[in-house]
Structures are given as structure tokens and as C-alpha cells.
């Protein structure tokens, strides 16, 4: 464990909690893509299949449970909470995310570390996390609605990616056996897509700021 990875994990966790709290506090999920949140839930479930078979550390186990729990809570809130679900942009959140699931699974069948059930699902979850932001990006381009996508959420998401890249650089130089190519390359693709999301976030935020200029 190094400080970059720990910070990355903390920022990732905070970004999810910020989103969950925002949805719960405002009882609204307008502007949030349920499909992206469903993909994140699938990422965590398929990545942590070893939750009950491999014990790495208390921190590792607790964080896995918290990631699965908090993302599941967001999906539940957006789909079943009587008040929140009414504000879901169902007609705008139309990205066919099943294609992403299928494509990532096929890729994992070809590109993985070992051809075992657990390893293929692990690689699948790494690829899926990289593209999971797409439905949210498309929804943001269509709606320009950043009401629930707070600046903090975007900041923590960016910090998570930045610190994880620092973590890989650190591990590359510090550990003789660097076998994280799948995580690393997929993580770079993910960070590029996040940068695109941040760009559209900034445009939407700027436009909204202009719209609300004092008359």
C-alpha cells in the first residue's frame, strides 16, 4: 500500500458518498445517469468476486464492502425510492450500455492475465470501469444538467484518477515485478474519458452560470 493508492481510494470513496448524499439530501437524481451507476455496481460486483475467498487485509475487505454497498444504494435510490425515482431522466438516459457490457466481456475473454473464471471477470471489471462513464457523459451532453453533479463530485473523481496514475508510476519504479498492464492501460483510457466528461461538465457549468446571471 502506498500513499498515492490510499489517497486514490479515499477520493474514489468520497466521490461516491458525495453523489449518494446529494441524491438523498435533494431527493432528486435529475442529471444523473442510472446506467452509469448500474455499470459501476457491476464493476464492483465482478471485481470483488474474491471477497470471500482471498483475504488480503481488513482495509481491502472493508473498502470492497463499502464500494459495493454505496454504489448499490445509489442504484436503489434512483430506481426504487418513491420520490427520487420521479426525477430520473429516463427519456434522456438512453445509452445502450448493454453493448459496453458485451464488448468488455468479449475483450476480457481475449485479454486477461490467466484464463480462469475469477481472472476473466476481474479483467472484465477493469475494462468496464473505463467505459462506465459514457452513459453519464452522453446524458450530460444532452441535458447540460449539472444540478446533482456537484463540483465536489467531479473534483474527487478527478483526484481518484490522478492519484491512481501516480500509484502506478510509483509501483513501476519501486517494484521489480510490474504486472499491472491491464489496470494501467485501461486506467489511462478511463482517465481520458473522465477528462472528456470534465470538459463537458465545465461547459455545462459555465452555461448554467451564465443562465443564472443576476438579471
Amino acid at each position: 500500500m502506498n500513499i498515492f493508492r490510499f489517497a486514490g481510494d479515499m477520493f474514489h470513496l468520497i466521490s461516491i458518498l458525495v453523489l449518494l448524499l446529494k441524491i438523498y439530501a435533494t431527493k432528486s437524481c435529475s442529471g444523473i445517469s442510472l446506467k452509469t451507476q448500474e455499470l459501476y455496481a457491476l464493476v464492483f460486483v465482478t471485481r470483488y468476486l474474491d471477497l470471500f475467498t482471498d483475504f488480503i487485509s481488513v482495509y481491502n475487505t472493508v473498502m470492497k464492502l463499502v464500494f459495493i454497498g454505496s454504489t448499490a444504494a445509489i442504484v436503489w435510490c434512483m430506481q426504487w425510492h418513491p420520490v427520487v425515482k420521479r426525477s430520473y431522466d429516463r427519456e434522456l438516459d438512453t445509452f445502450r450500455h448493454y453493448f459496453l457490457v458485451g464488448a468488455c466481456f468479449v475483450l476480457a475473454l481475449f485479454l486477461h492475465e490467466n484464463f480462469t473464471f475469477q481472472e476473466i471477470f476481474w479483467a472484465f471489471s477493469i475494462y468496464l470501469e473505463a467505459v462506465a462513464i459514457l452513459p453519464q457523459l452522453v446524458l450530460l451532453q444532452r441535458s447540460g444538467n449539472v444540478d446533482n453533479l456537484t463540483g465536489q463530485y467531479v473534483f474527487f473523481l478527478g483526484a481518484y484518477r490522478a492519484f491512481y496514475i501516480l500509484n502506478w508510476i510509483y509501483r513501476y519504479f519501486m517494484e521489480q515485478r510490474f504486472s499491472r498492464w491491464i489496470s494501467c492501460i485501461s486506467g489511462l483510457v478511463q482517465t481520458a474519458l473522465y477528462a472528456d466528461f470534465f470538459y463537458y461538465y465545465f461547459l455545462s457549468w459555465k452555461n448554467n452560470a451564465k443562465l443564472h446571471l443576476p438579471a
Binding site: R5, R47, T53, D54, S179
Partner: peptide
Amino acid sequence: SPKGSSHDEL
């Protein structure tokens, strides 16, 4: 002892 899973990252 914890299995040396190469996937110790979250």
C-alpha cells in the same frame, strides 16, 4: 496467510 493475489488494488 492471505493468498498473494496479484489484484491487491481496489
